[in-house]
Every structure is written in C-alpha cells, then in structure tokens.
Nucleic acid binder design. Structure first.
Length: 876
RNA sequence: GCCCGGAUGGCGGAAUCGGUAGACGCGGAGGGCUUAAACCCCUCUGACCCACCUCGGGUCGUGCGGGUUCGAACCCCGCUCCGGGCACCA
C-alpha cells in the first residue's frame, strides 16, 4: 500500500466528509475504536444532522485480513444448518447428538436404508460432510474458459456470458466448494422487512430468492417403485396431468429408462433412438454439450425424448408417459414436473410438439374465450394456448375427492389435503436461489484453509496456523486447454512445494495436499464492514463488545447493522445477498449481535455522458469529437454516431477527476456532483454547468475574505431579523436535506442564503450570519469550509463543532403571501399572518379589491381556506 | 413475455402532506463597472395573446387520452416512450 490509507467507505465518503482529515500515513492506520475516534465520528455524524447520540461509522483499513476471512470460512466448514432451530450450529454438536443416539442425520445424507449407528468411519465422515455449510460438490457449474475459472450463477448474465469480461460461459460438471446459502433462503427473505432499503432492491432480492409455494406429488412407476417426486404450484390441475418430465440430469432417469420401446410408441417420441437407452443417452449428451448460450439462441423450441416407461397419476390411476426434456431444470424444485398442457404454456408447447393429450381441468371465464376469438366454452382442442389464469375446476373428481366447482385456491387446498391423507403429496416451498459456488481457479484470492488427506477427506487447517498465505509463483494464469474435457487447473496446483504439507491434526504428523482453488472476490467484501470496526484485533475478527456498540440493534426486534450503506445497484443480488448470508451465519454462531449487516441502504446513480462510435461500432474518445453546425458529429473528420451511457473507460467518455481538480479544485467537483440532481438518480455530466457551483464557492469566500488583501472582512455587527430568519430557514432545510440525502437541495438553499447576504452589509457581513453557513457547507465543500473556519479565527477543525440547529421560533415568517382562488384559479394574492384563521382568511380574501371586483356580488357557495396556504372561493 | 423505476422550460433539476408549478444552477437577452476584455454586480428569461410612459391582465402549460376533487406534476383508469432487473423457475 502506498500513500494514504484513507478512512472512508461507500457510506462515509458519500457525505463528502473531509476524508483527508483522517488520512493516515501508511502503516499507521487508526483504530477507529479508540475513544477519540469514536467521539470524532459521532460528532461528524451529528454535524450532518443525523440526530443519533451514537453512530456506527465505517472505516477502511489495509487489506491483509485473509486470516480472518479464512477463519470465518472455517466457521462455515465446521457448522451445519439445524432445521429444528432454524439456526446454524457447530457440527461438533451434531456429531455428539448422533453418537449419543439422540437424533438421526438428515435423510438425504444417509446411504439408503442405513442409520448412523450402522455406519463405518468413512461413511460417517461422508454424512458429516454432507451437512456442512461449506461443502464440496460435483455439480454442473459455470465454466468460463476465457477467464479460466468457474463462476457463480449470479456472475453469469442473461446472454450466458461472464459479468466480468463478457466471455462465453458453459456448463460443465466439476468438483467445487459450495456454500449452503439456500438454507437461509427463508430468513434472507423475511428479514428484508427489517431493513430500510429501497423497495426495488428488496424486490430484486425477493425475486432472486424466488420463493414459491406449491406441493410435491409422488408419481409411482407402473410397478409401484420407484416414485418420481414432482413439484407443482398448481396441484389443483393434477387431474389434467397427462405426462411427466424429468430433467435430463435427474437421478431417476436410468431407473425409468425401459429396455425397449413399448408397442405403439410414436416415432417422434424416440428421438431416432433404436431403444430408450440409446435415445436417452444421446439426448443427455446433447444437452450436456449445449452451452447456455446455445439454449438461449434456440429460444423456446421444446425438445425431449420418451423414456419408454409410464408413471401413475395418483389422483386417477392413469398411466402417463415419462419424458426427459431440457425445459425442466435439474436445480429447481425436485427436477421433475407433472405436465398439465391445458394450463401451462411450456407444457402446452411440448404437448403440441409431441402429440400428447391436453385435458381441460380449469374452466376459463367467458372473457378469455372472447379474447382468443373462441366461442364461449370452446373445447380444449381449439385452444391456441394454455389457460393459466383463475377459473373454476372441472373434470377433477375421483371416488374420494372432487374439486369440481371450486376456485383455484380452494381446489389447491382441497387436493393438497387429500394427497396428504393418501401419503402421496404434501405442500412444499421451493426457491430459485441455488447454493453459492464459492471456489475459483485463480491465483489472487484467499486460499482455502483446507487440506486433503489420502482418502479424499477435507480437513480444516488449525486456526492458530492461519493465515494460509499464497506461495510465490511465476505463472499466475490458469491453464486453459484446447481439450474440451480437460479439467481446469488452478495456478496454485503447480506450486508443488506449497501444495504438499505436513501437519499434525491430532493423530500425529501426516502429509496432506492443500486445496488449490481460491475464494472469489466476494469473500472479503462479505464481512469487511465488521473488520472496519476493529481493524487491528489479533484475537478475533471483531471484538464482540465493539460490534455490539457499533452494529448492535438499538431496540429489540431491530436488525442492527451499519447505519447507512451507499453503493451501486449492481450489487443488489451479489454482494448484498452474500454479505447478508455470512452475517447471519456469524449471528447464529454467536459472533455478532446484529442480524443484518446493513440497516439502511442507498443506491447512488451513475454519472452518464455521451459516447461516440464510428462505423465499425468502435468507441472513439468523446473528448475528441467535434459537433458540426448541422448537429452531426465527427472524429478526425470521420462521421460518428452519438449514444449515451455510464461514464467510463469502455465507452471512452470519461471526464477524469484530475482534469476537474486542475481546473476548479476538489470541492467544486464534489459540489457539482452533489448539486446536479438527486443522489440516487443517474444523470448526464455537463462540464459547462460546473462553473455554477464554482461561482458559489467564490461568492461565499468573498463574504468572508477580501480577495485582494486577503483580510477577513466579517464584523461583530448585529444580524437583522430578515437575515436571521433566512439563516434559520436555510439551516432547517439543510439539516433536512442531509438527513434525506437530498444534497442537491442543500446546495440550493445555501446558495439562496448566500445570495441574500451579498450586497446587504456595508463594511462586512456579521460573523453570526456567516459561521453557521460555513458549518452547513462543510460536508459538501470540506476544504473551503475548513479554510474559512480557520480564517474566522478558530484553532481547531470545524469537524469538532456541532452542526448548527435551526431555532423553530425563527422558522415562522411574520407574514405570508397566499393565493386567493376563484373556482380553483389564482386571481389575487393576500398578505396575512401565517396562523390567520379560516374566517380571517375569507374576510381578507373578500376584502381584496380585485377579488371583490371579480365576484361582483356573485354568490359564494363554498369557501375552502387552508391557513398559511391558500383561499379558494367557489361561485356558481 | 413478466416485474420495477422514470418522463416537469433551451439544459440539469425544485415543488417532502392533493394547495401560488418552474426554487437553485447552466445557457440566453439587456444594463452597470472598465481605456478595453475578463472577472464581478444588477434586471429579465415556460409558451402564446392583450396592454406597454408605467403598474399590469388573460389563455394554455408538468409524455398522451380520460376520471376523481373546490383544487392534480402528485390520486385512479387506459396508453406511449425511455432506463433497469428477471427470463423454460413448473
């Protein structure tokens, strides 16, 4: 690290606080938790009118917290999610209970038909590993050859390309570290209600978590075993299920693949395969090879093959054919569906393509038929599309239960109840959220504090041996092979001396191999707000008392967390979801007292600017583009096209801060950015406008200092009433604007007030009129304000001075001018006391010469008078 | 396709609770200061019409079309366009 280690964060910096004041030379970072620092921070925030007696403040520190990031990873590795309590617990507690015979492991982790007590050591170890919050999984992952690494789902965009670098991404099965974020889906969803975040961001997280309620239903094989569990949100349509589809990767595909095609299998069901196994294998191979991008390109064309077997619809005993198709996703629900073509668009398309049955079980309203140009009640064969709306159940009865005549919600409840009694189904909640793919094949990144033994089991590196540091190597690139089946090789795997390690993990020194993947860039950002509280703590990642002081909930039921967090929307479902997950794990394990990391969130907008492309579609430097008289644009004499976008390197449309510092200074740049519009809104950069705020700073300066002599010109003279009122109104508006982060209006009010001062006082502006303004300006223009403060004779920083508070008595004007309307149209104005009664207002309005003239004796049928606001006379 | 946001002068934007639309700034016009220019200071600046020595007055106006209300930039219904998110999630 070179130069300054500046105490700032997204949230802190956004206030425009004088970061330089806190700049500390490298190697001497402050402990923000010293009393002096806490007091200082609290004053800073009080100065901003944020109104709390104590405030948590973020402060950046040096990197080098690998050690604690690794330590937290080990907490995930050594914990499991206890469904009973809904909390993470140490895995040691689980093992103790298993050994004592107090409980059995989660079913899906046990080998079929066994119990804990039957298992040998290796199997027990596998069961334990399957419970961990950090676990290794062989699963299809997003492999990005261009980056030589795998990516999390959240890092892959809709075009099947990497968020970073825009490289193609393909699916490939790989052994990777995963974090069990899905266990926290419900709490991540519910606790959004505790947060003061923009609704659109909450909504994005809700959609990403994607909770949906429905039912799982068992469709048994014709012979009775095994059963396919399907997930549906429409159990009410179960009588209309005419086939079942497994995801191509589903575990039961082999079990359901017949030896030969049944009699009468249509040709198009076989995919050209001589027998079901050939067809299924070919289809699976084809699916596996297709990248996400190819799938996208082929839009919604439905493909699939018949497995040659049938399953039994539990409500009516009908055999329904079992297909595999890639429109069913392996990672969602149970990876298998019941298809109800009459009431699901995708099933409808598939059924039409494969000639499968379509059975109406929800009767659409007349309006639906009309919209589709059908006669009311037209038979399902004529439907151009599935009906997915609300309707009345029909043709949905067996000997035991009838849904006929019920609405969709009632039918869902009725059939779910019946399935429960039969033991063939139950209501279920599923989420779109998947577990978080946490390993990368990169050099830069925290190494996993994990070693592998010869039997392939992972072991934690003891906490006292952390951090595991990166070895020195020469070649940092991941090995990219032309062989499509070659496994990605992380750069660390080539550091043989580092990989092989001898450790005593309690059973004597043994040789292990280090994990050679590294953690993604998110790992550090998942908890940095905690480390900033206590950056030099060698005993813990944060002292619990310090965490409780800065982040702890202020009253029961509150989330706690950072008071204000400012950042871009691009983090909505990445950083902000990951960090919440880690925080909740740490909360469960008793390491933090806050349930959420960030209490209030604010998204700043982007600065945008025009960008220009030439005929090849390449961007040319915007600064070099010349605008012609006819509104066309040229670069080096070549015509270019204008577009508009986020200011940055890729569009070559940046104005660098350096240019602005050079021309106007840092305060002007900061003030400009705060002034041009609401902080949360993207808006264009317009260099021409910068001069406006620059002038403001000069005018303020000249109200304090004679620009020729450099002498301070303020006087000890009295402040007149008008000025005093103007001052306090400005202070009130400024405090309000800071609180609500509407900095643009603060600038406007300060400008207004400063304009009021100009030319008003002969021989200098009174000190009492100027000093509060300087304090109010400081968050927006810290350097100028600090300089003025010193020249005004103060020998300590204004950072130590409280934010001036408006006197409520001075906020009320002596008189106000309010409009008088006739029939809602403004016809005149009257000047009245702000608290004049409605009767007084009416009298004053009628007394107004122009109003009297316009009324001309007409009958006033109604008077609406709002004190301090307006009077409206309603006439016939 | 679905889900969010947004649209106000020539430009960025203000109007926080349904109560004087256009604060503040940029740009523009005119004037003062100056040998001159810059800086600075002052006045004006939504459109249209009437009046004009002067004060002024009227109509329209917040993307479009309707509605509710004494009164709508703000609430409701139906659209258009722009920005963002998700997208075979059963």
């Amino acid at each position: 690290m070179t130069g300054h280690n500046v105490l700032h964060t997204m949230g802190y910096d956004a206030f425009g606080l004088p970061a330089e004041q806190y700049a500390i030379e490298s190697g001497q970072h402050p402990r923000v938790t010293t009393e002096a620092n806490i007091a200082n921070m609290a004053r800073q925030l009080a100065r901003l009118g944020l109104g709390h007696d104590r405030r948590r403040v973020l402060a950046t520190t040096d990197v080098g917290y690998y050690r604690w990031t690794q330590w937290i990873f080990l907490q995930l590795f050594e914990s499991y999610y206890d469904a009973g309590s809904g909390r993470a617990r140490p895995i040691a507690a689980l093992v103790a209970e298993l050994d004592a015979g107090d409980r059995e492991p989660d079913e899906h982790t046990l080998p079929a038909g066994s119990s804990w007590s039957d298992l040998g050591d290796a199997d027990r170890r596998r069961v334990i590993d399957a419970h961990r919050l950090a676990y290794v999984s062989e699963a299809p992952v997003n492999w990005c050859p261009g980056l030589g690494t795998v990516l999390a789902n959240e890092e892959v965009n809709a075009e099947g390309r990497s968020e970073r670098g825009n490289f193609p991404v393909e699916r490939r099965p790989l052994r990777q570290w995963m974090l069990r974020i899905t266990s926290y889906a419900e709490r991540l969803l519910d606790d959004l209600d505790l947060l003061d975040w923009p609704e659109p961001i909450k909504l994005m997280q809700r959609n990403w978590i994607g909770r949906s309620t429905g039912a799982t239903v068992a469709f048994a094989a014709e012979g009775g075993d095994p059963s396919i569990e399907v997930f549906t949100t429409r159990p009410d349509t179960l009588f209309g299920a005419t086939y079942v589809v497994l995801a191509p990767e589903h575990d039961l595909v082999d079990a359901f693949t017949a030896a030969a095609w049944p009699e009468g299998t249509p040709n198009e069901w076989t995919g050209g395969g001589a027998d079901p196994k050939t067809a299924v294998d070919a289809y699976r191979a084809a699916t596996a090879r297709r990248s996400e991008r190819d799938r996208q390109a082929e839009s919604r064309v439905k493909t699939g093959v018949f497995t040659g077997t049938f399953a039994i619809n539990p409500v009516n005993g009908d055999p329904v054919p079992v297909f595999i198709a890639d429109y069913v996703l392996t990672g969602y629900g149970t990876g298998a569906i019941m298809a109800v073509p009459a009431h699901d668009e995708r099933d409808f398309a598939f059924a039409k393509a494969f000639g499968l049955g379509v059975v109406e079980v929800v009767h659409p309203p007349a309006s639906w038929f009309a919209e589709h140009g059908l006669d009311d009640g037209a038979p399902v064969e004529q439907w151009p599309d599935a009906f997915t709306g609300e309707g009345i159940a029909t043709a949905s009865a067996n000997d035991d239960v009838s849904l006929d005549g019920l609405s969709v919600p009632d039918a869902k409840a009725a059939i779910t109840g019946w399935l429960g009694v039969q033991g063939t189904g139950r209501s279920t909640v599923t989420y779109k959220l998947r577990d978080w793919l946490f390993s990368r094949q990169r050099y830069w990144g925290e190494p996993f504090p994990i070693v592998w033994d010869d039997d392939g089991f992972a072991h934690a590196v003891p906490a006292d041996q952390l951090p595991v540091t990166l070895p020195e190597i020469d070649d940092f690139t991941p090995r990219v092979s032309d062989d499509p089946d070659a496994l990605p090789e992380p750069p660390l795997a080539r550091a043989d001396d580092w990989v092989k390690v001898s450790l005593d993990l309690g059973d004597g020194p043994r040789t292990y191999r280090r994990e050679t993947n590294t953690m993604p860039q998110w790992a550090g950002s998942c908890w940095y707000e905690l480390r900033y509280l206590d950056p030099h703590n060698d005993e813990a990642f944060v002292d619990p008392e310090i965490e409780a002081y800065w982040m702890g909930p202020r009253s029961p039921g509150e989330s706690g967390g950072v008071d204000l967090y400012v950042g871009g929307v691009e983090h909505a479902v990445l950083h902000l979801l990951y960090a919440r997950f880690w925080h909740k794990v740490l909360f469960d394990l008793g390491h933090v007292s806050s349930v959420e990391p960030f209490h209030r969130l604010f998204n700043q907008g982007y600065v945008q600017a025009y960008a220009f492309t030439d005929d090849r579609g390449f961007h040319v430097p915007a600064a070099e583009v010349v605008e012609g008289d006819d509104g066309t644009f040229t670069h080096d004499g070549v015509p270019v096209h204008r577009e508009y976008g986020k200011m940055g390197k890729s569009l070559k449309n940046s104005v660098t801060p350096d240019e602005m510092y050079e021309a106007y200074g840092a305060d002007t740049l900061r003030l400009y950015e705060m002034f041009t519009g609401p902080f949360d809104q993207s808006r264009p950069w317009n260099t021409r406008d910068v001069i406006g705020v620059h002038r403001l700073l000069q005018r303020i300066w000249r109200n304090v200092v004679d620009e020729h002599s450099g002498e301070v010109t303020v006087t000890d003279g009295a402040v007149d009433d008008d000025t005093l009122r103007a001052l306090h109104q400005m202070l009130d508006a400024a405090a309000d604007g800071y609180e609500s982060l509407r900095f643009n209006t603060v600038v406007a009010r300060i400008t207004e007030y400063n304009n009021h001062l100009i030319g008003r006082f002969d021989g200098g502006v009174p000190r009492a009129a100027v000093e509060p303004m300087v304090l109010a300006l400081a968050p927006l223009a810290p350097h100028v304000a600090e300089e003025l403060w010193e020249r005004l004779g103060h020998d300590t920083s204004l950072a130590w001075h409280d934010f001036p508070v408006a006197d409520p008595a001075l906020l009320v004007a002596e008189t106000v001018e309010i409009p008088v309307q006739i029939n809602g149209k403004v016809r005149s104005h009257i000047t009245v006391a702000p608290d004049a009664s409605t009767d007084d207002l009416e009298a004053a309005a009628r007394a107004d010469a122009r109003i009297a003239e316009l009324l001309d004796g007409a009958e006033v049928t109604r008077v609406i008078a709002v004190p301090g606001r307006m009077v409206n006379l309603v006439v016939k």
